[in-house]
Amino acid sequence: MAVSEGNRPRGREDLLYQEVTDGGVLFDPDGEKVYVLNASAAFVWNCCDGAHSSEEMLDELAASLGPGAPDRTTLRADIDKAIEHFRRNGLLADA
């Protein structure tokens, strides 16, 4: 499922996030599960603040990667995939 442009996902506030050099680690105290996020998923997680739309995430991700960034279609797919992963695992706050 592609994330609609108007959607501004927000991560659950009770989750614990730890940044690591190759991405991030999320701990869900409810299910006591640990999720490993690669660098782009970690970037998306940090944008899941209820203020960023997926289009804005895309702009920021492209800017942070600079000239060597993959094309926007690839980045958009990465962002959609990460958000879908967060949603499927119940890591996002209910809208």
Partner: peptide, 22 residues
């Protein structure tokens, strides 16, 4: 293991992880 995977796997072996998870 990458750093993220290492942290996730090692967390299972911390006896008092739940006391102060962050």
């Amino acid at each position: 293991l990458g750093e993220g995977e290492a942290v996730a796997r090692l967390a299972r072996f911390v006896m008092n992880f739940r006391d102060r998870p962050a």
